[in-house]
Amino acid sequence: MARVPILGDISGVLDEGLEGLEHNFVTARIEDLVKWSRARSCWPATFGLACCAIEMMATGAAHYDLARYGMEVFRASPRQADLMIVAGRVSQKMAPVLRQIYDQMMEPKWVISMGVCASSGGMFNNYAIVQGVDQVVPVDIYAPGCPPGPETLMHAILTLHDKILTGELTSRREQTGAGAGFDLADFPAPEPPAPEPEEAP
């Protein structure tokens, strides 16, 4: 007997034949499916800097269990990560490194600025600290707190998931030209080799 979570027993799904199509299938846009899968497996890069990194690790550990959101896999390589959680104060010396790691991440990518130090410099308004990581990379979500507790970080993550689902972030980037600066128009698809006529979709 075939069981699917939520749907239950689906062993008789084909018995109705073609007539069953009307109530057994849900149609949706492929774009929504892509957004949904992006939101549900958003792998963060390990980019712990200071105090917030400890709270970020605590969020991933036993009690708060970030695995519920498909996010427990902190990737060491930026190429495998979708989300950069800037956890802690960014010094002038670290800022170029941060930007390089951001550039190494593959599109689509998102940034959460965790804690006041990353968001605005916090209490350290001095020669050493970058006053807000948004001067270095585009930030999607700001999590307040010094350091933000795991609940705050999880709220930031859920907010980010909502924004990924609504597609607001990507559309805003297209408008403002932010992001890594790549535009699909810059990379035209190669000419089809064979001159076979195709029907328009």
């Binding site: 605005s120 410099g121 308004n125 001095n126 020669y127 050493a128 006053q131 807000g132 805003r172």
Partner: peptide
């Protein structure tokens, strides 16, 4: 930077409005 004739180097924070 820790010499007394160097300032703390504070930068005024620019608050941006949300979109």
């Amino acid at each position: 930077p820790l010499r007394k004739d160097e300032g703390i180097g504070a930068i005024p924070v620019q608050f941006k409005s949300a979109s």
